[in-house]
Simulated assay, not measured.
Amino acid sequence: MTPADQPVLDPPALGTVPDVRLIAVDMDGSLLDDQKRIDPSFWPLLDALHERGVVLCPASGRQYATLRRQFGRDDLVYIAENGAYVVRDEQELSSDGVSRDAALPVVDAVRQLAASGADVGTVLCGKRSAYVERTDRAFVEQAEPYYARLELVEDLRAVDDEVLKLAIYDFGSAEHGAAPALARFDGPVRVVVSGEHWVDVMSPSADKGHALQAAQRALGVTREQTMAFGDYLNDLGLLQASAWSFAMDNAHPQVRAEARYVAPGNNANGVVRTIASALQLDGVLSR
């Protein structure tokens, strides 16, 4: 049976409407379909949430500038760089970066991997911009969708910016290639598989879940008033910080096991349909 032939789940039945005040939504594999599109029904849903006093929180490995451009508004809480940077109303709520002493050996290690034949490259994610020293079009095209501010530089070691994380793209399997090759750095940093081809090297305490907790504190919202959606391993903390946790139907098995519920998949507009059903906002789907 192909994915297109698989039955589409209905949103799970929650019973009574939960008192939700904050909704954290992963992007790739969750809100976005496989063509990286947001369903048009999302925008009236967002307006309905705002009218009800519910704050939406896009939570992504993407850069803050990329998320801000995509949503076009400042009243959301943006969890960027897989939790290393949290912003609302252009004000930083939290940041948790990587020291240069910890970051530069990873840069060197990826260079060595590439020299040995691995098809990999590094994005150094700073507060002002993201930076790449691998400048072939094939690699840059993989980075551009996630980093609205992206600079091509000669030497990542010479970049003068506060490092939030390092994102390593592996044209093969990140889970079986770049991640185990970088596992020896675990300790001073944390190595996280964030997608089929991406590995993030972050502060040991940087996590979407910790970032969501910072947002909860800033907004005066509890875990029981929080809903979250995710599909991949970097979303586990996000789900753990939420009482109303949903794995997408297309989620990694470990994420499905962690979540309280399973939502329809990302290609079935599962996030929007589940929120509308849970909060009884079904009218937005027909606007």
Rank of each mutant, 00 (worst) to 15 (best):
A257T: 10
A228I: 01
A278T: 14
D249I: 06
Q240C: 03
P264A: 10
N266G: 03
G209N: 05
I275V: 15
W244A: 11
H252M: 04
W244Y: 15
T222Y: 06
V272G: 01
A278D: 09
N266M: 09
A218Q: 05
A251W: 03
Q280V: 14
E224N: 12
Y261A: 11
G230T: 06
N266E: 09
P253N: 05
N267D: 15
R273Y: 00
A263L: 10
K208W: 01
Y261E: 11
A276Y: 02
A211M: 10
V221T: 02
V255S: 03
G230E: 06
Q225D: 06
R260Y: 04
L212S: 01
S242I: 01
E224D: 15
M202C: 13
A206C: 10
F229A: 03
P204S: 00
M227P: 01
S205A: 13
A243C: 08
V221Y: 01
A247M: 07
E224T: 13
N266H: 15
L238Q: 05
L238P: 05
Q213N: 11
A211D: 10
I275K: 00
A211H: 04
Y232A: 11
S205G: 10
V262P: 05
M202V: 13
G265N: 14
L212H: 00
A215Q: 11
A276T: 07
R223L: 05
L219E: 02
N266D: 10
V255F: 02
R256A: 12
L236C: 04
P253C: 02
A257F: 08
I275D: 02
A211R: 05
A276K: 02
Y261I: 09
N250W: 05
M202A: 12
L238A: 04
F246Y: 15
Q254I: 08
L279R: 03
D282H: 13
Q213C: 11
D235K: 07
N234E: 11
S203D: 13
A263S: 15
A251P: 03
A214M: 10
A206I: 08
N250R: 13
Q225G: 04
I275Y: 03
Q280R: 15
G270L: 14
L279N: 05
L212R: 02
A268P: 12
F246H: 15
A215W: 09
W244G: 08
P204G: 00
G265M: 12
N234H: 11
Q280N: 15
S245E: 08
G209L: 04
R223H: 08
M248C: 07
Q240D: 14
A241P: 06
F229L: 10
L212A: 01
M202H: 06
G209R: 03
A263I: 10
N269C: 12
S242W: 01
L236W: 04
D231R: 09
G265C: 12
F229T: 02
R260F: 03
